[in-house]
Design a protein around this nucleic acid. Sequence first.
DNA 1: GATGAATGAGGATTCATTCAT
DNA 2: GATGAATGAATCCTCATTCAT
Lengths: 191, 191, 191, 191
Amino acid sequence: MTRERIIAATSKVLAEKGYDATTLREISREAQAAPGLVHYYFGGKDQLLVEVLQEAGQRFNQTMKLLVQEVPADQALDAFLTKLYERVGQEPNVYRLRYESFSLGLHNPLIEPKVRERLAQRREEIGSVMAKVLESDTKGSAIDPNTLASLLLPLFDGLALQKIMDPTFDLDASYQLLARMLHSLLSHAGE
Amino acid sequence: MTRERIIAATSKVLAEKGYDATTLREISREAQAAPGLVHYYFGGKDQLLVEVLQEAGQRFNQTMKLLVQEVPADQALDAFLTKLYERVGQEPNVYRLRYESFSLGLHNPLIEPKVRERLAQRREEIGSVMAKVLESDTKGSAIDPNTLASLLLPLFDGLALQKIMDPTFDLDASYQLLARMLHSLLSHAGE
Amino acid sequence: MTRERIIAATSKVLAEKGYDATTLREISREAQAAPGLVHYYFGGKDQLLVEVLQEAGQRFNQTMKLLVQEVPADQALDAFLTKLYERVGQEPNVYRLRYESFSLGLHNPLIEPKVRERLAQRREEIGSVMAKVLESDTKGSAIDPNTLASLLLPLFDGLALQKIMDPTFDLDASYQLLARMLHSLLSHAGE
Amino acid sequence: MTRERIIAATSKVLAEKGYDATTLREISREAQAAPGLVHYYFGGKDQLLVEVLQEAGQRFNQTMKLLVQEVPADQALDAFLTKLYERVGQEPNVYRLRYESFSLGLHNPLIEPKVRERLAQRREEIGSVMAKVLESDTKGSAIDPNTLASLLLPLFDGLALQKIMDPTFDLDASYQLLARMLHSLLSHAGE
DNA sequence: GATGAATGAGGATTCATTCAT
DNA sequence: GATGAATGAATCCTCATTCAT
């Protein structure tokens, strides 16, 4: 119970303040728990933060996976993009934690492989969606679904960052153009 | 002279360790300067780091701008992409500082507007390149060059992040597919 | 417990060294406590020192108040002076902290009003004692007890300073002459 | 020339900020002189500040001495008090430096004897004035002029402090009552 | 005579961490 | 299981002081 409160408090503070600026004191205040408890449960600050970030990453991947599976096959591409688009605006904290995770991986050699692995995993998921799309849509396309995924994942993440840093950023227009590009690509892929 | 050494040392440490983990002690050691000098010249740790990040951001934008202008108009698109592609692999630190700047803007309300502004500025530059490309390439295209730029900038940044976090990431393939997508889009834009 | 030790140590060091020359290191050494504890309990150096000085000032006023109340009404004046006289010689540190408080108020706009207020409060107390003395002693005196107090308080403080700075200063003679002056004033006040 | 500017700047900053809070940087800025010059001319911060304080003390004593000598003998007492009274209101900085000097003497064993000496010297001067007053005014008074001076000096200093700390303090009333007390004492001294 | 860049010791402060209860 | 007082290493920062020019 207290453990969960600490994790929730950590997520919140972490998304707001960032890794280093997050203090155990603020977490314990937010969670209404004794400062010493963090060590009792998690062993230390780094362990706690990494665990929370890790978990958030897995939840992110998991949610995205489910989000795709719900989508009917015949309208896969558009539905997929729509889902993603909605998600960015609704849960900015999810993306904030995501960037915190990238930021951490960029400087912490111990965390880096885990982040890299989650990125690869995510590309594969997108790749498998794209595989379906390419299959149903094209006749002998030369497009590799994994390469396409390697283009789409960074694009989604990049777009979300733009939107978070600049609320006036027209995410909608970007997604519409993206949809157009993808359709254009798919319908002429064999040429 | 010493001032420049401090700036150089800061860039290096900052790209390696990240904003918070960067200590004045390490900077002064790397720059072979007295610790107090940072305050003498810059007024404090934050001022120094922000100034360095700011400057790096402006240099980034400036370099990119020049890089575009060198390119002959008739082969604008491919040349443009090629330049960008080369840049990511060659100067990872430039991108590391770039992400550090994003990360800082994400948590520091004072820095955020400056980062946002640089992003907007960069989108405009890419937009003006795209305007040229769209002009020469299409007959009555309905594509807005700025929207296209709003898609390309986050994509470039996102791709660079993938490459930095995962050296085995096939940046080349992604850029080739991107080129294909753009060509496909342009040549059928009026349809 | 530790908190009290820190306060005691602060009083000691403060009286010896003065506000600015007092370091947390010396306080923590004297109190046999960790340096960080000062911030844990008091929030910082200034808060600690101000609190100690404030408290010393209130204790000073309080002690003086009690000291007056113990005195029988018929011998009020002489007894009052005697008490004050004894106090100066016995507890020089009380007066050292008092001057430290004045010194702080002289340069710190935040502290100044508090010091001023304590001075006014003290004058009033002396004034009420003088009111009694004037009542019993005189027939239609034109002497305002508060004005008399406005003369006596600075005189007491000034005399204490002389004594502290110069142990050979003949405080006794001064107090005897003062008593003579007061008696002379009172017995001929109506003239 | 520059030397004088430094001394003037030091007096100003010292009266405002107090001994410890006075920095050479602020002095050099105020005096529009290079920071290194303080050492060039005075040998260091402490030497400069002590010299300035010393000089201010001597000027104080000197001014007071002259002030007394101008006064005609037959109206010595009242004129003397009037002069003092006027001085307090007109030049608060003179008194601020005076208290700074006391404050320094209270904590610095090297300065203390000098301050003590100036106090003694000042008492003697007041004593010699009182000697004249007592002579002309009384028939075989038992009042020691030096003892009286030992009462008056701390009183003057104490009153000035009250006035500086509390601008609403009625210094006028205090001085009038003091005059009354002194006259009362003198005219009945032999009783 | 004068400058101001450079030094480095010493200060306050923060914060993860520990441990007796 | 839980507490929170206490620790102390590490950080930023200030400032008198020096010295080459």
